[in-house]
Design a protein around this nucleic acid. Structure first.
Length: 131
DNA sequence: TAAATGACTAACA
DNA sequence: GTGTTAGCCATTT
């Protein structure tokens, strides 16, 4: 087939705006993959015309070890993405998900929320404060 | 064909 | 907060 899995993933990655990031799991969900690791494989083989640096893991951290990981962080910082003291990106601020309508029109699936909503407190008496 | 490998993730301990 | 386990699947040996 001409439209390989990698091609479809590259298409999505190229759609990520400058200064924004998404996760392996997000991309995986969009192409109906249950294993985000495959996305990593594809990124590893990606070319220079793919903004692979905008793909990070679900914790907002860079998964790559060594020099390549350092390069990824530098590239992102040049785009305006901020890292905290522990080297994490706030996905609530920089995380990006394509427009749902656009996704379906392109034949992709709509992924679950990028940022997990606050888990309900286990204790009944505990209540979330609004401020 | 079978086994190993990974730029992952969620669930536990 | 950190470390370990199991599941996952395309690709490569």
């Amino acid at each position: 087939m001409d439209l390989t899995l990698a091609e479809r993933i590259y298409f999505l990655v190229r759609a990520i705006p400058r200064g924004r990031v998404t996760t392996y799991g997000q991309l995986g969900a969009m192409v109906s993959l249950t294993d985000a690791r495959v996305i990593g494989d594809v990124m590893n083989a990606s070319r220079a015309d793919v903004p692979w640096q905008r793909v990070i893991n679900a914790r907002g951290m860079i998964s790559i070890q060594g020099a390549t990981g350092a390069r990824q962080r530098r590239l992102l910082e040049e785009e305006g993405v901020e890292f905290d003291a522990s080297g994490r990106v706030d996905l609530a601020r920089f995380g990006w998900t394509p427009d749902a309508e656009w996704l379906t029109a392109q034949g992709y699936k709509i992924p679950p929320p990028l940022v997990k909503e606050a888990e309900p407190r286990k204790k009944e008496g505990e209540q979330l404060s609004f401020f």
